[in-house]
Design a protein around this nucleic acid. Structure first.
Lengths: 118, 118
DNA sequence: TAAACAGTTGAGCAACCGTTCAACCGTTTA
DNA sequence: TAAACGGTTGAACGGTTGCTCAACTGTTTA
């Protein structure tokens, strides 16, 4: 994992600040996890799915009707949300019910609303 | 803005739930704004910029050094963050100092950390 | 006033992402 | 047991996005 070259094209202007800040920066691995987490909220479809599941546990067909999309499209997005531990599911006969995995989702969405309504 | 066809490929299974949830769904326009907002947190570079600015106001050069990237790349991302009202700037001679526009950023990032550290 | 420097911008390219499509799996029902 | 149904999957495509590069602006300095 060695850098082959320096990509920065300029000199540091305020060395002391850069030093202090660089000590406080989180690990690149944590940053990547965080970016992946927020990526789940960066798409219209996923936000609407999460919003819906906040109201009620729902199956794939109902979500497809609600959002006027194909089951396939919904299922793909649910898979991403599952892999990010944002939703969980249970099967009941032919039907699979999805619901939110925890209650951070509401907190996150609410914070977003606070920001855009200013 | 009329739909030309129905994209959904299945029947509703639980009509009552779909009806209730559909009444609680936010407007598509609000969802889009929300997605755009979270898009700003969905990239490693932008997260690291925001994190750095939370520690200290910084200029483009210092950010470039800190993140080992070109001034151009940093400047492009700062423009996105500016357009999303997440950062503001002030010029002092040749130097432009960027800082966070409000304190929602910290709240949002912290909530993200809570989720990924479980 | 010209050179130097901090920063910005737009075009272009490669990588990524969301949807579609068609084939498939698992459960129920006729 | 075969058909029907709810849901999943992988490949393919078109659009988006992040970086690079080169040219540019605005401010300071020699």
């Amino acid at each position: 994992m060695k850098k082959t070259r320096d990509l920065c094209d300029c000199d540091v202007l305020h060395e002391a600040i850069v030093k202090i800040v660089s000590e406080q920066m989180p690990k690149q691995e944590e940053v990547a996890k965080l970016a992946d987490f927020f990526k789940m909220f960066s798409d219209d479809t996923r936000i609407r799915i999460l919003w819906a599941l906040e109201c009620n546990e729902m199956c794939v067909c109902d979500l497809a009707v609600l959002l006027n999309m194909t089951k396939s499209a919904i299922s793909h997005q649910l898979k991403s949300l599952r892999l990010s531990n944002l939703v969980k599911y249970r099967r009941e006969g032919k039907t699979v019910f999805y619901s939110l995995a925890d209650d951070h989702v509401k907190t996150i969405l609410d914070q977003g609303f606070v920001h855009i309504n200013e």
